[in-house]
Every structure is written in structure tokens, then in C-alpha cells.
Simulated scan of single mutants.
Amino acid sequence: METRAFETSLGPIWLRGEPAAFDDDRPVVVVIAGAFAPIDAFDLLPQRLPQAAVLQGHIPGNHCPNLTANTPGVFMAAYSSAIAQLGRPTVVCGASLGGLVAMGLRAPNVRGLVVLDPLIRTSGLAYALPEFRAALARRPPQDAVDLIWTVFGISADTVETRSYAGVLDGLRTPTLCLFGAPPDETTALEPSIVTEADRALLAAHPAIRTQVAPGAGHHLHVDAPQLVLSALRFFLDPLIAGTA
């Protein structure tokens, strides 16, 4: 794997992939993993999608440099700039916070979005509050503390709800949004973070089609990999055939 930096006015975006993926003429799949995801979270995707040039990215500050601010808006703008520099038809797959970032992309070469259990409002994160508090107790770097507070509204002694539903106002890119099952319909240790109200909001958007992965939790690339691959192929196949 090779990592290349794409310079933007807000700081660099790092994308990681096989060297050929940066330079050949295949359509691109850019993956934006969730906050604090392991670096290899999507490492199997290039093998499963050999017809695409798969490039993996992370939330700024996680396995890559920080940007000028720890806000979803800054992440969206920087990733939009980096993806535009690719200059090739691109499908973006975003997970969790990465899914929110994907829905805020405005790069002209993005042809479709596959969004996995996206962060819309932080009210769906109540089950994870002890994990966030435990992470803060380990005294992580200040940038991580800032991210947990700014994006998720969690500090050592305070919880504030954050809503990012406004990102949907400017969304025009065709989007497939996949959810994990509701918490009472799964045994996953990390259930879906998308509330019923937010599922309804997403389903009502004219650019979005939604689907629930039965029994799956928040990490759909682990719990429902075939469904994720099918969603990516929905956008990739027309690009490969030259009909999109």
C-alpha cells in the first residue's frame, strides 16, 4: 500500500491504496472510515472490487494529519478538494462520521455515495457514552479531546446533542444509505447509531435510497459486507460500462 497526500487549503488529505490505483484509468472508490477506525478497516475492499481503484481515507487526525479545525464542515470541504484532484469518476463509501462527511462532498466527479450507518444526530450514541468517557480518561492527545467534544458533544462531565441534519439540504448526489438493524433487533455489541427519526428523515430525501441490513450493527462493512459490495457495484457497473 502507498499513501499520497492531496494538498488542500485546509490541510492535507491522505489517501492510501495500491500504487496503480492512483494512476490508472479505473473508476475510483474512495472510502472514508469512521472516527478512530483502525487503519486497515477496509483493507479487503481492493480484493473484492478489482474493477475499481480503491483508495482509503480516514477522519483527519486518525492515521493522518489534522486539518485547520475538527469540524465536519472542514472535513467535507477538504475531502471535496482532494477527490476533485483525482480527476476520475468516483464513488465514495463513508462509514459513521465518514458517512456524514460523504454526504457533504461537493466534488464534481463524485457519481454516487454509499453511506453506512451515518452520524446524523448524536442522540443515537448514548450506548457508546461509557466508551467515550473511558477514552477521555486515558488522556488522549488534545486533538482527539477536541474532536470528541466538537463533533460528538461529549466531554468528561458534559453531554450536548449535535445535529448534522442540515447537510441533507445541499445533497444532490445519488445516495444509497445502509443502516444496521435497530438496537432491539440485533445482538451486535455496537448497534446502529441512526435513530428512527433520522431513518425517516433520510428515507424522505429525494436523492437517497435506504436499506436496513437485518441483524447487523453499526459496522456494516463487517456485519453485512455483501450488502456493502452490492451497493458499491450499483454505482460502479454503469461507470465501467460507460453508461454513467
Rank of each mutant, 00 (worst) to 15 (best):
M1R: 10
E2M: 10
R4S: 10
A5F: 07
F6D: 14
E7Y: 10
T8G: 03
L10F: 11
I13E: 08
L15N: 11
G17C: 09
E18R: 08
E18W: 04
P19M: 06
P19H: 10
P19T: 12
A20Q: 12
A21N: 13
D24E: 15
D24F: 04
D25V: 11
V30N: 08
I32E: 13
G34R: 00
A35L: 06
I39E: 12
A41R: 14
L45S: 05
Q47G: 09
Q47T: 15
R48W: 06
L49Y: 08
Q51C: 09
A52C: 06
A52G: 08
L55D: 12
Q56P: 08
C64M: 11
N66S: 13
N66E: 15
L67I: 15
N70H: 08
P72E: 14
G73P: 04
G73C: 07
F75E: 13
F75D: 14
A77Q: 14
A77M: 08
A78F: 00
I83D: 06
A84S: 13
L86Y: 06
P89Y: 04
V91F: 01
V92H: 02
C93I: 08
A95W: 03
A95T: 12
G98N: 12
L100E: 09
V101R: 05
V101W: 02
A102Y: 00
M103G: 04
P108W: 13
N109F: 15
L113H: 05
R121C: 03
T122N: 04
T122F: 00
S123C: 02
G124R: 02
L125N: 07
P130L: 07
A134T: 13
L136A: 03
A137G: 10
R139C: 08
R139E: 15
P141F: 09
Q142C: 03
V145A: 03
L147F: 04
I148E: 08
W149T: 10
W149I: 06
T150Y: 00
V151L: 00
V151C: 02
V151F: 00
G153C: 05
A156G: 09
A156C: 06
D157E: 14
T158K: 02
E160K: 00
E160H: 01
Y164E: 12
V167W: 01
D169P: 04
D169K: 05
G170E: 12
L171A: 07
L171S: 09
L171V: 12
T175H: 01
T175A: 02
C177V: 15
F179E: 10
F179L: 04
P182R: 12
L189K: 12
L189M: 14
L189I: 15
E190Y: 02
P191M: 09
S192V: 00
T195E: 14
R199C: 15
R199Q: 15
L201F: 05
L202N: 05
L202M: 11
A203H: 05
H205M: 13
H205R: 13
P206F: 07
P206Y: 03
I208L: 04
I208W: 04
I208H: 08
T210H: 01
T210C: 11
A216D: 10
G217F: 02
L220N: 06
A224H: 03
V228E: 04
S230H: 09
S230V: 01
L232Y: 02
L232D: 09
R233E: 10
F234D: 13
F235S: 07
L236W: 03
L236C: 07
D237Q: 10
D237W: 02
P238D: 13
P238W: 01
L239M: 14
L239G: 08
A241Y: 10
